[in-house]
Design a protein around this nucleic acid. Structure first.
Length: 425
RNA sequence: GUGGCCGUAGCUCAGUUGGUUAGAGCGCCAGGUUGUGGCCCUGGAGGUCGGGGGUUCAAGUCCCCUCGGUCACCCCA
């Protein structure tokens, strides 16, 4: 075979050590926050009947129109890789009908066929929560707070929370009609793309950045003025709740998120430290009609998705989530062929102490070099004399001056523990 | 899908108006120290110059195509 060099497909990437350790740390923190708040993990298939995503995100959404990884399996079923997390969880809710409220979290890859750029991948990773079965505004507050506290717990500080309300099945259609009427009067001013599209997807015009649409937007009807009384009350209680627990927010009238299922509360956290175009690290909202759309009973719901890659970029920009300290405690240096390293690393690891070694019977110099780079605090050296006298030379690799002593091999665990108890000097 | 910029060693990059055998730093391996890492010194391994075609006596260098990367539009995490 000729030498063909393969690469990860366009828009995907490998996450290798040590970066992967940050992913573990981040997911672990999220899991802990979810546990504290009473959320349980949902693992669902990475692919679904393509209709699950079509019906939830909406036929007119960009994601469904031309970003889905669709395929037919050998049985001819029309499937798609998940482009976002919510649809699968709601489908699982409809299928299993758990007791309400159902508070869940997930971590998953998500796939969208887009042109990659800074902070945007064809496969990226999201963690998030979904709560089914309550429209209590305190639940909106709880969900937003969970995302907020998660980002803060990682050390991110330069965050902005944008919120909005999309109304419900009563007031949204009324607003939409008013918006269409307005856009109809001003269609000549719209940007070229929205001149075509404004009738089918009028809300998109609201967050269009092109000059034409921006100008048309100046006198546009505002959703806030069209909310029905229950929606206005709901939104007011969400804001009051955020105030009560000290989470700052800013209303963004034009926060129109990309999936059609949103009702009432929508929100998004922007990482201000990111100067890249893609600075939304997490966002979500309420979707009180979605379960019904997927064939279930009418059930309120709310959730968010949070992009792991973007959160990591934001952490880099703010110098957060560094120094994860994944190093082992002891590096066993074996000059007798490797048997002692095999035995001692096993003893140490069984006792809960991280232990590394070199393979292939390298020279002492090479082994100590590896020991140094491994970040281990101690080297445990076994040469011919130690082997003969059943001892080990323990050496402090962090001490500026050479500090080492010979200890009995059967006292190794005690000695290692007492050395580790004293900080390096 | 559209546009800008960029492809030379594992990584970051030099490489003159086209001109012998393509270099450096870092990293890796070995030695200097026959049992002591970090600092230093010496040596070594490692390259289809992204790929293909063309111009030329001669192409890493010029032209065309293509693939890939990157950033932006769009959209979103």
């Amino acid at each position: 075979m000729p030498p063909v060099s393969f690469r990860a497909p366009t828009g995907t990437r490998d996450i290798l050590p040590p970066e992967s350790a940050r992913v573990i740390a981040l997911v672990a923190r999220f899991a802990e926050l979810c546990r504290r708040a009473g959320y349980g993990l949902v693992l669902s298939p990475l692919f679904e009947d393509v209709a699950v995503f079509r019906r939830s995100a909406g036929e007119e959404s960009e994601v469904v129109k031309d970003e889905m990884y669709e395929f037919a399996d050998k049985g001819g079923r029309a499937l798609a890789l998940r482009p976002e997390g919510t649809a699968s969880v709601v489908r699982a809710y409809v299928q299993h009908r758990p007791p309400l409220p159902w508070k869940t979290w997930y971590v998953t890859p998500a796939f969208r066929y887009e042109r990659p750029q800074a902070g945007r991948y064809r496969q990226h990773h999201q963690l998030g929560v979904e709560v089914l079965g309550t429209e209590d505004p305190d639940c909106d507050v709880e969900v937003i707070a969970l995302l907020h506290d998660f980002l803060r717990a990682l050390g991110l500080e330069r965050l902005e929370l944008k919120i909005n309300s999309m109304g419900d099945a009563v007031c949204m259609p009324t607003y939409r009609a008013a918006l269409v009427a307005y856009l109809g009067q001003h269609q000549s001013g719209l940007c070229p793309e929205h001149k075509e599209r404004w009738r089918r997807n009028p809300l998109r015009v609201l967050d269009c950045k092109k000059a034409g649409c921006q100008q048309v937007r100046v006198g546009v009807p505002r959703l806030a003025d069209w909310l029905c009384e229950p929606c206005r009350m709901h939104f007011a209680r969400v804001r009051a709740g955020l105030d009560a627990i000290g989470i700052a927010w800013r209303i963004d009238d034009f926060l129109v998120r990309g999936f059609d299922y949103y009702t009432r509360t929508t929100f998004e956290f922007a990482a201000l430290a990111l100067d890249a175009a893609q600075n939304a690290v997490g966002g979500g909202g309420r979707y009180d009609g979605l379960a019904e759309q997927l064939g279930g009973p009418r059930t309120a719901g709310i959730g968010f998705g949070c992009g792991i890659e973007r959160v990591l970029l934001a952490c880099d920009a703010e110098g957060a989530l560094g120094d994860l300290g994944g190093a082992v405690e002891v590096f066993v240096v074996d000059l007798t062929g490797g048997g002692a390293a095999r035995d001692l690393t096993h003893v140490l690891r069984r006792a809960g102490i991280g232990a590394e070694r070199a393979f292939d019977a390298r020279s002492m110099k090479a082994q100590l070099k590896l020991a140094d780079r491994s970040g281990a605090r101690l080297a445990a050296i076994v040469g011919a004399s130690e082997l003969e006298s059943a001892t080990v030379t323990l050496r402090d690799l962090r001490a500026d001056q050479r500090r080492q002593s010979v200890v009995a091999r059967d006292r190794l665990l005690d000695e290692v523990r007492s050395w580790l108890a004293v900080p390096a000097q």
